[in-house]
Amino acid sequence: MTHHPDHEVELFKDEGSYEVYADLPGYDRADIDLRWHDGRLHVTAEHRTDDGETRVFNRHVSVPRRVDADAISATYGDDVLTVRLPVSDDDDDRPGTRIEVGE
């Protein structure tokens, strides 16, 4: 079951990870560009309609702890992007990572 956020973007802390939920109605999975860079999650989505209009969503989410960039996962379904950011105790913090969005 998909969590439908009450706000455009929500951040929750769970056992050992953060979860980010972004409400993106009307976007396709291919419209979403998701990146982890400098301790922030960057969510960008751009959708062009058949009548030439463009809708753009752009948000950044910071978390207070280090994240295991290699273990970040994301899914998109029911118009909601769900991103899991596992907390890491490792000091090896890479500058940036692109994240694939699954179904």
Results as ranks from 00 to 15, higher is better:
Gly77Ala: 06
Pro25Thr: 08
Arg48Met: 13
Arg94Gly: 15
Val56Cys: 04
Arg55Asn: 01
Glu103Gly: 13
Leu81Gly: 07
Tyr76Glu: 03
Asp89Gly: 13
Ser73Ala: 15
Val61Arg: 00
Tyr76Ile: 04
Val61Ala: 01
Ala69Leu: 04
Thr54Lys: 06
Asp51Val: 14
Val101Gly: 00
Asp51Pro: 00
Ser88Asn: 05
Pro5Arg: 00
Leu85Cys: 06
Pro86Asn: 05
Glu19Ile: 12
Tyr21Ile: 08
Tyr21Gly: 03
Thr82Cys: 05
Met1Gly: 14
Thr75His: 09
Phe12Asp: 08
Asp70Ala: 15
Glu103Ala: 11
Val61Phe: 03
Phe57Cys: 02
His7Gly: 10
Tyr27Val: 07
Val83Tyr: 00
Ile99Asn: 05
Glu15Trp: 12
His42Asp: 15
Phe57Lys: 02
Val83Gly: 04
Arg94Glu: 13
Val56Asn: 09
Ala45Trp: 01
Thr82Ser: 14
Ala69Val: 11
Val56Leu: 08
Glu53Cys: 07
Tyr18Met: 06
Asp33Thr: 13
Leu34Gly: 09
Tyr18Asn: 01
Leu81Met: 02
Glu53Lys: 01
Thr49Ile: 05
Arg55Pro: 00
Lys13Ala: 14
Asp31Tyr: 10
Asp92Ala: 13
Val56Ile: 10
Tyr27Thr: 00
Ala22Cys: 10
Asp68Val: 11
Gly102His: 06
Val20Lys: 04
Asp93Cys: 11
His42Leu: 15
Gly16Arg: 09
His7Ser: 05
Pro25Trp: 04
Ala22Glu: 05
His60Ala: 11
Ala30Tyr: 06
Gly102Thr: 15
Ser73Cys: 01
Asp90Met: 03
Ala30Asn: 09
Val56Gly: 04
Gly52Ile: 04
Ala45Thr: 05
Gly39Ala: 09
Ser73Ile: 08
Val87Cys: 08
Asp90Gly: 06
Tyr76Thr: 06
Val9Asn: 05
Val20Ala: 14
Glu15Ala: 13
